[in-house]
Computed example of a mutant assay.
Amino acid sequence: MEITSNIIPEFEKLFRQKLQLNNCKLRKKRQENNYEITTPAKDIFLMYWCEFPEIKLIYQAVGVRTQQTVVYERAIRSHINFCVTSIQESIMMTAKTT
Rank of each mutant, 00 (worst) to 15 (best):
M1W: 11
M1K: 15
E2F: 07
T4I: 04
T4C: 10
T4R: 12
S5C: 13
S5I: 14
S5G: 08
N6C: 12
I7W: 01
I7Q: 03
P9F: 05
E10I: 04
E10H: 12
E12T: 15
E12H: 04
L14I: 05
F15K: 03
Q17M: 11
Q17I: 13
L19M: 05
L19C: 01
L19Y: 01
Q20Y: 02
L21M: 07
L21K: 12
N23E: 15
C24E: 00
R27D: 13
K28V: 14
K28W: 06
K29A: 14
R30E: 14
Q31H: 06
N33H: 07
N34W: 01
N34F: 05
N34R: 12
N34S: 11
E36A: 07
E36P: 00
E36L: 10
I37K: 02
I37F: 01
T38W: 00
T38I: 04
T39Q: 03
P40H: 09
P40W: 06
A41Y: 07
K42G: 01
K42Y: 12
D43F: 05
D43K: 02
D43S: 03
D43H: 03
I44Y: 05
W49G: 03
E51R: 09
F52G: 02
P53W: 05
E54H: 06
I55C: 01
K56T: 09
K56G: 04
Y59K: 07
A61W: 09
A61Y: 11
V62K: 13
V62L: 11
V64S: 07
V64L: 10
R65L: 02
R65C: 13
T69Y: 03
V71H: 10
E73R: 08
A75H: 06
R77S: 13
R77N: 10
H79W: 09
H79P: 02
H79I: 08
I80V: 09
N81G: 11
F82D: 08
F82A: 04
F82G: 02
C83F: 03
V84N: 08
T85H: 05
T85R: 09
I87W: 01
I87F: 01
Q88C: 08
E89L: 14
E89I: 08
I91A: 09
I91W: 03
M92V: 06
M93W: 07
M93A: 15
M93H: 15
T94P: 02
A95E: 14
K96D: 13
T97E: 10
T97Q: 09
T98K: 14
T98G: 15
